[in-house]
């Protein structure tokens, strides 16, 4: 088997005295979907944010494609930016730029950061908006959109820089329940197209249907990992069973 597209080894990170990552390994093959699940405080979001340097682990390595970073060498901002350039990110709170139109949000990376010609970037952005079902919203502003539409613009913005990997940080957690489906559908179709995705989520049905592998994190370690048919259906670890039980039956 060829080397995974994304590989993290031995990630360790503390916030003050609180050790949130205690040696995390993640390997993501090209074209696959990895879901990170676990209780709040388990470290799953911190792992995700370590993959693009929004968090800086104390030790461990991250490699995406041919860009590798050893966190223990305290890499400078330029090295972190190079790693970050390999991935796109979709945030829980979408973080769209409120002063820019939908189209300008999507072209912000290609035009402002990558210096690509505006006309070409806009053409590509319109295709991406079409892709997420929002071709008619190009000239709207984020405030005029529903939460689900905003999140789909966020996905288009993340894809516009042509990343190797797309990172999703609880993309549906802030949405009204009836808007969750439209976002998950877009993500599912991206997976089918062959995008490499790492998704922090509480949507177990999405993980069941779309993920190639699931990592269950608790207390800053990967407790269990494998295909969803194992981790989510027949978990070996008591902690995984407990967590899934609580999701199924919150009362």
């Amino acid at each position: 088997m060829s080397a995974p597209l994304l590989e993290a080894r031995g990630l360790v990170k503390s916030f003050g005295d609180n050790r949130v990552l205690r040696g995390i390994d993640v390997a993501v093959p090209a074209g696959s979907v990895t879901c990170l699940i676990g209780p709040s405080g388990s470290g799953k979001t911190t792992v995700l944010r370590s993959l693009n340097g929004l968090e800086t682990p104390e030790t461990g390595t991250v490699r995406v494609g041919d860009v590798e970073l050893d966190w223990s060498t305290r890499p400078d901002a330029r090295a972190v930016a190079r790693l970050r350039g390999q991935s796109g990110m979709v945030f829980q709170a979408h973080n769209l730029f409120p002063h820019l139109s939908v189209l300008d949000n999507v072209t912000s990376g290609p035009v402002f950061a990558q210096g690509r010609p505006k006309a070409e970037a806009q053409e590509e952005a319109r295709a991406l908006l079409e892709r997420v079902g929002l071709a008619d919203k190009a000239d709207s502003f984020p405030v005029q959109l529903s939460g689900g539409q905003q999140q789909r613009v966020g996905i288009a913005r993340a894809l516009a820089t042509r990343p190797e990997v797309v990172l999703f940080d609880e993309p549906t957690s802030a949405l009204d329940p009836e808007l969750v489906g439209e976002v998950l559908q877009v993500m599912q179709s991206l997976a089918a197209e062959g995008w490499t995705m790492v998704v922090v989520t509480h949507e177990m049905r999405f993980a069941r249907q779309v993920a190639d592998q699931v990592l269950f994190l608790d207390g800053g370690v990967v407790v269990e990992q494998g295909p969803p048919s194992e981790v989510l259906v027949e978990p070996r670890e008591a902690r995984t069973r407990q967590f899934l039980q609580r999701l199924l039956d919150p009362l």
Binding site: L54, R84, F97, S108, Q114, R157, A158
Partner: peptide
């Protein structure tokens, strides 16, 4: 908001571009 800085950084902007294109207009 901090999320604006983070979003700008994840689409590849550096500090100066983020200030000029994202933070100062807001």
């Amino acid at each position: 908001p901090r999320g604006q800085w983070e979003a700008a950084m994840t689409v590849g902007m550096g500090r100066v571009t983020t200030l000029r294109r994202v933070v100062l207009p807001q």
